[in-house]
């Protein structure tokens, strides 16, 4: 059970602050929301946490571990998974192959047995395909296993990304607008899965535009505007906060 903590994290681009003094905690077993109008710096926050961008000032920790300076791939191996705002899949690869890629951090066969095609290499492939098959079933996508990922609908592609992230068996999961472009029933079925995943002790940070979705799912919500935290609290508190209403309507 590991929590994600940001303390006083800042980052600017060419003197322009994109994220300014953000302090936030996403506890294990909960879905924490991060909302804000367009250009508030939400995706920058995700990129800072995952190490794709270097932190200018401040500290990021996962559990007890300081990951402020960790590289993106080291962070992922430590169990920080994410989805992307603009879906990023291997379009030519099948759905199953895309999900199998998510298991990378759990692969145990060494380089040499992979190079020489030892039985352990083949056994691992079968094992991962079985595990990926189980994920596909959970998301109701078994029928699409052999389809090229790029040929599927937007909603299905979102699910593939989600399965790939869950394949990492993460301790922290960052969801960058996971229900954008989905209808209500699709969003509802995903919400069930998120609750379920959080229930297993994963710290989920949900970045979302869809206010209703965030309100229904999150126990605690942070509101970002122009890179600064303007409000935080439980869904009701945040919903009533005049600063939040102004930030959303004013943009």
């Amino acid at each position: 059970m590991k929590a994600l903590c940001l303390s006083d994290v800042s980052r600017s681009f060419g003197g322009l602050p994109a994220v300014d003094g953000l302090t936030l905690t996403a506890p294990a077993g909960r879905v924490t929301g991060l909302i804000g109008p367009n250009g508030a710096g939400k995706t920058t926050v995700v990129n800072l946490i995952t190490g794709l961008l270097k932190v200018g000032r401040g500290r990021i920790t996962v559990g007890e571990r300081d990951v402020t300076e960790a590289s993106a791939s080291a962070l992922a191996r430590a169990g920080v998974a994410r989805t992307f705002q603009n879906i990023r899949l291997i379009a030519d690869a099948t759905v199953l192959e895309n999900v199998v890629a998510g298991f990378h951090r759990h692969e145990t066969t060494g380089v040499l047995s992979n190079l020489f095609g030892l039985p352990s290499s083949f056994a691992e492939r079968r094992r991962l395909e079985e595990k990926a098959g189980a994920l596909l079933e959970r998301f109701g996508m078994t029928a699409f296993a052999a389809h090229p990922a790029g040929s599927l609908s937007y909603g299905h592609q979102r699910r593939i990304e989600m399965m790939r992230a869950l394949a990492m068996d993460p301790s922290v999961l960052l969801l960058d607008e996971p229900v954008a472009g989905m209808n209500d029933s699709e969003a509802h079925s995903l919400a069930e899965i998120f609750r379920d995943v959080a229930g297993q002790g994963v710290a989920i940070l949900l970045i979302e535009h869809n206010m209703r979705f965030v309100m229904s799912l999150c126990t605690h919500i942070y509101v970002l505007a122009s890179g600064r935290l303007i409000s935080d609290g439980d869904p009701e508190e945040v919903g009533r906060d005049p600063k939040v209403i102004e930030a959303y309507l004013g943009s």
Partner: peptide, 24 residues
Amino acid sequence: ASSIGRAFDVIREDETVAVSLGIS
């Protein structure tokens, strides 16, 4: 067909995705 080939394919298609899956 091994783990190495899978990593190669992800890196070639999208390096950002590769690092976010923990591929060095």
